[in-house]
Write a protein that binds this DNA or RNA. Structure first.
Lengths: 147, 147
DNA sequence: TTAAAATTATACTAGATGGGTATAGTTTAG
DNA sequence: CTAAACTATACCCATCTAGTATAATTTTAA
């Protein structure tokens, strides 16, 4: 029940991209240094973001990366699913084969988890990168993560 | 971003325990057969539930497992954390060492993820086993998990 | 007091995943 | 045509996952 390291790096890289001035690009080495991310690992991760269509890349001299759309239009969910694939909280939600066969649709565990998964995805989709770069001050969620 | 198989088994085992009449116990073999769970794996998983204090066990002839409290008082969150340990969506939420050192508290990614994690835990805590055994009909969440 | 029914406690294993590195290739500006 | 950048695979090792194996302990009851 944890996001992997690539996703963490991707989120921080996206934060850098979201801060760029329009038309500007930033190269991977700069991101790697600023965010203390292993270069080769970052390159692979950035490719996932490009493939998912939330970042763009330009090769050659003076090339680099940028956001594919405005920061408001990119959410945490976009990044998480770009790196890790679609969120499936339980494999029975992905492959009905796992759902005990007998119940399929009317399994109460399945139903409850579907609701939780949906809530999780909505929560991730609520945060966009415009909000994030505006900064953490004035954050609407002050609840302790430990509660 | 997925619950592991042990958790899935635990949830289904707990569903069996929640259906017991007061004073009744059920042995692991019965659960394993009914829920198609590998016996030895189930035994280990049940031990986690016992250690976490949400199930009780009784050894010897006629022994077995039961809920430690009423079904209303056991939530999905209890089971998930009993099996997988505390939910930490990102390791930076667990170990500040990972949080880039420079920002610590004022990292916007950290803050947003803390909010998401909190929402996830609350959502898991909303579902208890009394509700689950009452059945999936009349479920309050009909949202498609794919949305 | 012994046998059988049950849980407990470790230890092990094959395969997958996670996090990272290496090597080689392609595009592009100048 | 060269250097700066991204692209594409392939590889590596440590940890995790899911499951199995072996042995011990507790309890009931014949």
């Amino acid at each position: 029940m944890q996001l992997n390291q690539a996703t963490d790096y991707a989120l921080r890289a996206m934060l850098v991209l979201a801060s760029l001035k329009p038309g500007e690009v930033v190269d991977a080495q700069t991101i790697a240094t600023r965010e203390r991310i292993p270069m080769r690992f970052l390159l692979r991760t950035l490719r996932l973001l490009v493939k998912a269509g939330i970042a763009t890349s330009q090769r050659g001299v003076g090339g680099g990366y940028a956001l594919a759309r405005s920061p408001e239009e990119v959410t945490l969910l976009d990044v998480v699913e770009a790196v890790e694939g679609p969120i499936r909280i339980n494999r029975c939600l992905l492959d009905p084969e796992y759902c005990g066969k007998r119940w399929a649709d009317h399994c109460p565990v399945h139903q409850a988890l579907a609701g939780v998964q949906s809530a999780l995805r909505h929560e991730l989709a609520r945060h966009n990168f415009a909000e994030l770069i505006r900064g953490a001050k004035g954050n609407q969620s002050t609840r302790d993560s430990r509660e």
